[in-house]
Design a protein around this nucleic acid. Sequence first.
RNA 1: CGGGGUGUGGCGCAGUUGGUUAGCGCACCUGCUUUGGGAGCAGGGGGUCGUGCGUUCGAGUCGCACCACCCCGACCA
Length: 491
Amino acid sequence: MAKEITSRNENYSQWYNDIVIKAGLADYSAVRGCMIIKPYGYAVWEKIQAQLDRMFKETGHQNAYFPLFIPKSFFSREASHVEGFAKECAVVTHYRLKNDASGMGIVVDEDARLEEELIVRPTSETIIWNTYKSWIQSYRDLPILINQWANVVRWEMRTRLFLRTTEFLWQEGHTAHATRQEAVEEAERMINVYAQFAREWMAMPVIMGRKSEAERFAGAVDTYSIEALMQDGKALQAGTSHFLGQNFAKAFDVKFLNSEGALDYVWATSWGVSTRLIGALIMAHSDDNGLVLPPKLAPTQVVFVPIYKSREELDRISSVVSQLRNELHAVGVTTHYDDRDNYKPGFKFAEYEMKGFPIRIAIGPKDLENGTVEVARRDTLQKQIVSSNSLGKFIIGLLDDIQNNLFSKALEFQRQNTTVVNSYDEFKSVIAGKGGFVLAHWDGTPETEAIIKDETKATIRCIPFDSKPEEGKCIVTGKPSMQRALFAQAY
RNA sequence: CGGGGUGUGGCGCAGUUGGUUAGCGCACCUGCUUUGGGAGCAGGGGGUCGUGCGUUCGAGUCGCACCACCCCGACCA
């Protein structure tokens, strides 16, 4: 199959593309900027969805579905929201095609122009708040805690598989609350859910914090994000949660009667993560042999590869594997048995490494004799011979170990690549050199942020929640600063 | 949108100063032998050379135009 991939050192972007394609996660499509998520990639997304959905339900949310199309007029209601999205909206103008008069294929029927154009949703705040208006009368109707799993379209100039595509899959939570405090708490709760998911399930350390004004979501009062560091030293925003204040309630006139009988605007939040998480997963853990997936999100955790000479030997191995698989299934481990006869073991080893299966178990004649199996772990590529007695317990422990090891490695990388700087010169040399996260004092103004972005391409990823107050001077203007901001070049 | 690159069987590529039947590796099909790190041999199938127009006795090769995709940058989750 000759599936070699470009090394990270040689060309990081190419390495990333190679993994996506050769691990079978996704393909380019006939539509510019849009990708085909292949079964293996979609299986990863389903694992992500399943766990997040569980966490959303545990925090009291329900799923619903709102339309793909949004009347154009809805968009203009909230001024900064329109401005933020106007440049990347796909617009539906007609509802019919017809045969071309000159017989040259099919054309848009100009007689079928829509009265009002429809926007293909880039996000659903407007259609949802237009709906909430009719759902909310009194404080007894609140809170409304809704999530939807959907596709959205943002017409990007330049796309990259999973990281930025014209159409992508995501979830968007939209909640309505009676008080400001409750909405703020909700926005904070959900960014914490995302952080927990990233750390515990993706084995990916993240920095949680507040966005600067320039990086804030269009239409939000406050945006919180989780920021992850990729292996090339660039930051990736992995999830966002917005406190929307009363902006959308005012734009869509959503008022409620509070318990004192007074009329007030509803408080809102929205929050989302997308298939971009798969890109994050790839760039957080994978190596030059291919994809590395954390056990908790791997579609299949263990693959069995038989090694045999004769049909009879294969049959004996298959029956042992069948028992072992049953044992593993009983303790909740997912497995696959690759008994294809047209590939040799070595080929299969390479293939499952490319696809990032956390554990590979080889079993051959020697193992049948000794009651053992050969267990290889994807994260370290180490192999060991293990007794096939009580294999379940061993595998459970090993999966856990791999999950933890991936997180520790990524955390160590993040630590090694987070630099505290106290001057602009130092800042520039770190950003231009080793890259990574840079913690620096900033005077809090968009002007200074713009200068830094202009001169170094680094942006403020967030102002971390857990950073201690610390007096200092802005690295650019020298003005007083009470806290360090987290800078990086970002995806 | 600017800069760079690439379009030739499924994939990766070669194809000379234009020359007739367009090759190679991998993959695929059949058979036999193999199987503890990407198997070997034998036989076989598969290509209007991205599209269009032009130059020419003759175009994968030369010219013009167009299209698509990738990489780098500006915009963004």
